[in-house]
Design a binder for these strands. Structure first.
Length: 664
RNA sequence: GGGCCCGUGGCGCAGACUGGAUAGCGCGUCGGCCUUCUAAGUCGAUGGUCGAGGGUUCAAAUCCCUCCGGGCCCGCCA
C-alpha cells in the first residue's frame, strides 16, 4: 500500500466514524505504540508503568513518557531506553501520531499529526455539537443534594457557593452519563425554623413586606436577638447573685455584642423590630415556647403546622426566585417533616439503633455510641479517624428528634431512589456527616455508607467576620447578583450603545449572573473564600464574562461568514500556525476534562478549562484572520475551528449553568 | 487540649490524589498594539529559597515526619 493510498484510507476512516474523544484516542494510540515497543525490547513492566503525561512545554510534544521507572526496573539506562523505544516506534504504523522523539535524560515524546487531528476533532464537534463533551450513558442513579438552606433567612453568599458548586456538579455528572436527580432538603423540623416562626407569630398586624425570604430572615434575626438578650440578662443576674465576677464580665461582653445587633436591626425596620422584640421581652419563657412549638410540629398539630409551613413557604418562595435567576433548578423539594418525622421514619431509626446495642438511653435521651460503631466495624483506619468519635444524641429528653437522626431516615429514603448519594454540605458539618455514616454501619448498612459522599466545601467569610444568620449579618445571593448585573449593564452600555435598551438589559443579566457563578465555582471547594466585591465583579480574564466574550467573538465571526463549515473541502493541513494547532488540541481535551471532573468530583476543572480555551482562542483571534483568509479551503477549515470553539465554549458554559450570549 | 482543612511573587488562584525535563495564570505596577472578524482583548517588562526544617527518591511544590501561622469542628444547634 502506497503512502497516498494509506492517507486516503485514513481520511475515509475519519469521515465514517465520529471520534467522540479525540484526545483519548490519541493517548490510546501512544500507549499502544509504547507497549509494542516495550514488549519488543523484552522488558518487564506493568500497565501502570505506561503513563503518559502532557509535557510542560510544547517542544516536548503533546504527550510524553518518562522511561526512568521502567529503566530502573530492568537495569537499563533511561536515555538509551528512550532512544531505542523512539526508534522502534518510528517504524510502526501510526494514525493520529505524527512522530516520536527521544529527548532529555529519558523521555519519549509523542507529537500529534495536526492535520488528521484537526479533521477528526472538528468533524466530531460539528456532528455532535452539544453532545461533544458528553460521555456515554451509565446505568447509575445519583442523587445530588445541595443548597438546602434552612428556611429562616435568604440564601447568603455561603449558601450561594453551595448552590453553584452543587448545581455545576450535578450538570457535570449528567454530562458524564449518570442519571442525576437534584434535591433540596427543607429542614422544617429544626429548632431554628421554630424560632423564626415563633417570632413571626408575634408580628400581630404588621404585614409581610419586601422579598419574602428577606423578611423571614429579618424576623429570625430579631427573634434570636431578643431571645439572646433576654437569656443573657437572666444569666448575668444569676452569676451576680452567685458572686462569679469573671463569668459576669464575659456575659456582659456578649450582651454588648447583641445590644449592638439590636440597634442595627431596629434601624432597618422599626415596626417589625418593635412588634417582635417587645412581645418576646414580655414572654415568661421564650425558649420554652419555641421548644413547645417544635414539639407540636413534630406531632403534626394543626396550628403549629399552619404557622411553620407559612414561614417556610415564605422563605422558599424567595429561594425559588433567587435560584431561578441563577439557573438553578431542583428535581425534588424534600420536606424533612414529611420524609422523616410525620411518617415515623426518624422514630423507627432510633428504635432500630437502640436494638443494635450501639444505642442506649441516658437520662431520657437516646444516644448512639459512635466510637463503638467505628471500632467494631474497623472504620477508624478506613475513615482516618484519629481521636474518639463523640456520641450522637438521637433524641432530646422532650422526645423530639435531632437533625442528624432525621438525616439518617432521609438518607435511607434517598437510597431507595439512587445508588449513590452526594451531599453538598459545608466542611463545618464534617462530624455529623461522619456520624451519619457510622449510623448506617450500625444498622448493618455499611454498603450504603460507602456510596454516601459528603462533598464538602469551605465557608465564605466576610472580611473580618463570619456571616451570621442569627445576627442578620450576611451578604445575600440576591444582592451579589444585583450588583454584578448593574455593573455589567454599565459595561454593556459603554461598549454596545447601538443595542436596544431591552437587549442591553438581557445581556447584562446573563453577564452579571455568569460572573457570579463563575467566581463561586472556579475556586477549589476546599479553600476558604473571603468575600470581596472585587472577586465577583471581575469581568477580565479568568471570569465568566471573559469566557462569554470569547464565545460572542466566535459567534460574531460565524454570523458574518455567510458560509458554513462543510468538512469535505476544508484544508486542515493549511492550519499550520501554532495558534490554530494549540486551539485544536485544546478543543480535543474537553471530553477528557468532563470525564476527570465527573470522576474526581471537581466541577472547578470545567471553569479552568473554559478559561484556558477562551485565552487560547483570543490569541488565535489576534493573530489569525478568518474572514479575510484568501484561500477558500483554508477559510473553511478556520471557520470549522471557530465553530468548534463556539460550540465547546457554549457546552462548557452550559455545564456551569452560565448562558452563552452571541453578542455583548 | 484533640481532630480536620489551608499556607505557592504585593493580592487572588492553578499545579499536589497519580513525584519527572525551565513552577503556570489572573489582578496590580510599568511600557506597547484598534483605517484589519467586538480592546470585556492582546504583546512585553516586573515579580516566587512553593510557610520552616528534616527524610524517602535517579528526580519533591507534589510522598513521609516535626514545627510555625490561619480557619473550622469537638452542642439535648444545623
Amino acid at each position: 500500500m502506497g503512502a497516498d493510498q494509506k492517507d486516503m484510507e485514513d481520511t475515509h476512516l475519519a469521515k465514517e466514524r465520529v471520534v467522540e474523544r479525540p484526545f483519548a484516542e490519541f493517548r490510546e494510540e501512544c500507549k499502544g505504540l509504547l507497549i509494542g515497543a516495550l514488549n519488543e525490547e523484552g522488558l518487564e513492566f506493568v500497565e501502570d508503568d505506561v503513563r503518559l503525561a502532557v509535557p510542560s512545554v510544547p517542544d516536548y510534544g503533546n504527550l510524553s513518557f518518562s522511561t526512568f521507572s521502567v529503566a530502573k526496573k530492568n537495569g537499563k539506562n533511561p536515555k538509551d531506553l528512550a532512544d531505542s523505544l523512539a526508534s522502534r516506534i518510528a517504524s510502526y504504523e501510526k494514525f493520529l501520531v505524527e512522530r516520536v522523539e527521544s529527548a532529555g535524560a529519558g523521555y519519549v515524546n509523542f507529537f500529534v499529526n495536526y492535520t488528521k487531528f484537526a479533521e477528526v476533532t472538528l468533524e466530531a464537534i460539528r456532528k455532535i455539537k452539544e453532545g461533544f463533551g458528553r460521555l456515554g450513558e451509565r446505568d447509575e442513579k445519583v442523587i445530588v443534594e445541595h443548597t438546602s438552606v434552612n428556611p429562616i433567612h435568604p440564601i447568603h453568599v455561603g449558601g450561594a457557593r453551595n448552590a453553584v458548586i452543587g448545581d455545576t456538579l450535578a450538570r457535570v455528572l449528567r454530562a458524564a452519563g449518570y442519571e442525576v436527580s437534584r434535591h433540596f432538603y427543607i429542614d422544617d423540623v429544626g429548632l431554628q425554623v421554630a424560632q423564626a416562626s415563633y417570632g413571626y407569630s408575634k408580628l400581630g398586624d404588621v404585614p409581610v413586606s419586601g422579598k419574602s425570604d428577606h423578611f423571614v430572615g429579618f424576623v429570625y434575626a430579631v427573634t434570636s436577638c431578643a431571645m439572646s438578650i433576654k437569656s443573657l440578662q437572666r444569666e448575668i443576674e444569676r452569676l451576680k447573685s452567685e458572686g462569679k465576677d469573671e463569668g459576669v464580665r464575659e456575659k456582659l461582653g456578649e450582651l454588648d455584642d447583641w445590644v449592638g445587633v439590636a440597634s442595627e436591626l431596629r434601624a432597618k425596620n422599626e415596626k417589625v423590630f418593635d412588634a417582635v422584640y417587645q412581645a418576646i421581652s414580655e414572654s415568661e419563657n421564650p425558649e420554652g415556647e419555641v421548644a413547645d412549638l417544635l414539639r407540636r410540629y413534630e406531632k403534626k398539630e394543626e396550628e403549629a403546622v399552619k404557622l411553620i409551613r407559612r414561614v417556610s413557604e415564605l422563605a422558599l418562595a424567595g429561594f425559588r426566585e433567587t435560584l431561578a435567576r441563577a439557573n438553578i433548578e431542583f428535581d425534588s423539594w424534600d420536606w424533612e417533616s414529611e420524609l422523616t418525622s410525620w411518617n415515623g421514619g426518624a422514630e423507627t431509626v432510633v428504635e432500630w439503633l437502640l436494638r443494635t446495642g450501639f444505642g442506649r438511653v441516658e437520662e431520657g435521651t437516646a444516644i448512639l455510641d459512635c466510637e463503638e460503631v467505628a471500632r467494631r466495624y474497623g472504620l477508624k483506619e478506613r475513615y482516618g479517624i484519629k481521636g474518639e468519635v463523640p456520641p450522637l444524641t438521637l433524641k432530646r429528653s422532650d422526645g423530639t428528634t435531632l437533625y442528624t437522626t432525621r438525616d439518617i431516615a432521609y438518607t435511607l429514603w434517598k437510597f431507595d431512589r439512587a445508588e449513590r448519594v452526594i451531599n453538598v454540605i459545608s466542611l463545618e458539618q464534617k462530624l455529623p456527616q461522619l456520624q451519619l455514616k457510622l449510623a448506617l454501619y450500625a444498622l448493618g448498612l455499611g454498603g450504603l455508607a460507602e456510596n454516601l459522599v459528603h462533598f464538602s466545601y469551605e465557608l465564605v467569610h466576610l472580611p473580618g467576620k463570619k456571616m451570621s444568620g442569627r445576627r442578620g449579618r450576611y451578604v445575600t445571593f440576591d444582592e451579589v447578583m444585583d450588583e454584578a448585573v448593574e455593573r455589567a449593564y454599565e459595561e454593556v452600555s459603554k461598549r454596545s450603545p447601538h443595542l436596544s435598551e431591552e437587549e442591553r438589559k438581557k445581556i447584562s443579566e446573563v453577564v452579571g449572573v455568569g460572573a457570579v457563578r463563575y467566581a463561586l465555582v472556579a475556586v477549589a471547594p476546599n479553600k476558604p473564600i473571603t468575600f470581596t466585591w472585587e472577586r465577583v465583579l471581575n469581568f477580565e480574564q479568568n471570569s465568566g464574562p471573559f469566557i462569554q466574550y470569547a464565545h460572542a467573538r466566535a459567534s460574531n465571526i460565524l454570523a458574518k461568514a455567510h458560509q458554513s463549515f462543510g468538512g469535505v473541502e476544508a484544508d486542515y493541513a493549511g492550519m499550520s500556525t501554532r495558534y490554530e494547532r494549540d486551539l485544536v488540541v485544546k478543543l480535543s481535551l474537553f471530553p477528557e476534562v468532563v470525564s476527570e471532573a465527573a470522576k474526581s468530583l471537581r466541577p472547578e476543572l470545567i471553569a479552568e478549562y473554559a478559561n484556558e480555551l477562551s485565552a487560547t482562542f483570543n490569541i488565535f483571534y489576534d493573530n489569525v484572520p478568518v474572514l479575510k483568509t484568501e484561500d477558500e479551503r483554508l477559510k473553511i477549515a478556520r471557520l470549522g475551528l471557530v465553530e468548534g470553539v463556539k460550540t465547546v465554549l457554549a457546552n462548557a458554559l452550559s455545564m456551569m449553568g452560565i448562558n452563552a450570549p452571541t453578542r455583548m
